[in-house]
Amino acid sequence: MDTTGPVERVLRGIAISLVILFFMFPIFWILLMSFQTNETILRVPPSMVFEPTLQNYRALITGRLETQTSTLEIRFMSNLYNSFFLSATSVAVGLLLGVPAAYAFARLKFRGSEDIAFTLLSFRFAPPLLVLLPLTIYFQQLGLSNTYGGLIWVYQLIVLPLILWIVRGYFEDIPADVEYAYRIAGHDFWATFWKVSLPLAMPGIAAAGLLAFIFAWNNFIFALVLASADKQPVTVGALAFVTASGIQYGQIAAGIVLSITPTFLLAILAQRYLVEGLSLGAVKG
């Protein structure tokens, strides 16, 4: 039943390759585009054969975009920095607030705890555009628009529910007896939280942090409306490539490659954590 013949193995290999090709093709194509000039990209019919160039990357890094008609100043690198700063800080704030809250929701069944937790989750259901208009007005009055602080605050809408719900599940999976055992051994509540609950939920916290980082990184609409050029992340900054003299596909591709690299690396790094998180489930019994 489980013994497979060589033919079956070959067929299975082909099928898996096809699936991988199907899913990876856009990314692969973008990678190719990032090493081409606009002319070779827009060739008809398209071809895989071209002379690779680093000009797109050079333009992004130096911040000078040469088009046929003019030279444009772009802020890609500062956008990249903004993305990184906004996402990392938002996740850090989100974890600081979300992890203890998740623990409270998991362990202390207080009156209305379910409702509050659900309300927080429901922030994810509302279309962001719905809250943007009133938010813009408030932010202007409070002097929060176009500040990092304001953006990080708004980003909590994205990261906090995510962290709360994922980490809560992990805390709930820790048998209460394990925490009790540490308490009874003579350690107080906080020591137990630090030495038992947190380490055991760490894979979940890492996973939640990673996901929250990716969601924050990919956010477009909040930053578009609430931040001006110097505070914008790459997602919004990429709009600059749609210039009066045409769309700079090569630079867009290079920009995409540069901007997905951090999250991509993070995902690969955290994959181990995620797997560990799954195998940690084995200790529950």
């Binding site: 009790y180 055992a181 009874i184 350690h187 055991l200």
Partner: peptide, 19 residues
């Protein structure tokens, strides 16, 4: 509080600290 009662306890499911 439990930590101040000076007890020892063993659990049915052992409740060892997995880490």
């Amino acid at each position: 509080e439990p930590e101040d009662r000076g007890l020892g306890m063993a659990f049915q499911n052992f409740a060892l600290f997995p880490h």
